[in-house]
Amino acid sequence: MALFIAGRTAQGALVLLAVSVVVFLLSFLSGDPAALMLPAEATPAQIAEFRQEMGFDQPVFVQYWDFLVGALTLDFGVSYFHGDDALGMVLERTIPTLQLTLAAMVVALLIAIPLATVAALRRGSVIDRLVGAVAMLGQSLPHFFVGIVLLIVFTVRLGWLPAIGSPTARGLVLPALTLGLYATAETMRLLRSNLLEVLHEDYVRTARAKGVSRAGVMVRHAMRNAVIPVITVLSLQVGTLLGGAVITETVFSYPGMGLLAVQSIANRDFLVIQAFVLIVAAIVVFLNVVLDIVYGLVDPRIRFEVRQS
């Protein structure tokens, strides 16, 4: 198991390195930062001086090296726009975003697991069809639309919840619902079909033959087996979820790093954006390793294979 974790961590580090190259090249290719950052009336001499000061006159790989060393020593430079440490700005906003993402995930699981179970148990019933419809809607509606509809209903019409999101219980409800809807739909659809499939397995028949009730079979036998592929899909979705967080935070002016990123893009504050992208990548990689470990815990066959190799 330790070997497995070490291997996955090394893999993750490689992914991050690759991301750093991409991030650097993208910001390198997005235009001359000196021209963007200096006022329009700057003289060529001023521009040249600025370029030299910032190191923009160096060859690409030297610039990349500086960037990488900076990233490794957690120095992403200073925001042009705010004058604050870029990394510090992003990190400060990371926790609220993680809170939002976690809340969305919890919402998704709390809604999806029971509904998928009922739908699978009562296949073809009204509930089953309702679940199917909700799953389809949830997967086809974009976040900004869901967010706006929720805002209109619960804030403008009913006045129950604040319009501005915040990492508090009340402030999280609407953003978490907005962000969680897609994951809810995906989990529900997948879990329902997995459960139906698993219910035909021989070991379910064995359990029934032992005298285990339908509910017992569902909870002790079907669920655990059906959840395994869901974990895989969820781990693939961490990135999507964080991407959705950017939109959701913008809709609700939620003080997370997504909102910061959108603002920084508008301000061409590209050191902040670099820090943002690398942090998001690090989070995705980290969560993937964690989910892989969870996967191994749920499915002993994986653990066994790892131990063997």
Partner: peptide
């Protein structure tokens, strides 16, 4: 029926490879 199955009448199936729950 649940209380009878496995209690007074039980069954052994053909394929033991798939008849046991792999994650239990």
């Amino acid at each position: 029926l649940n209380s009878m199955r496995g209690g007074v009448v039980s069954m052994v199936f053909q394929d033991p490879m798939s008849a046991l729950n792999p994650v239990m």
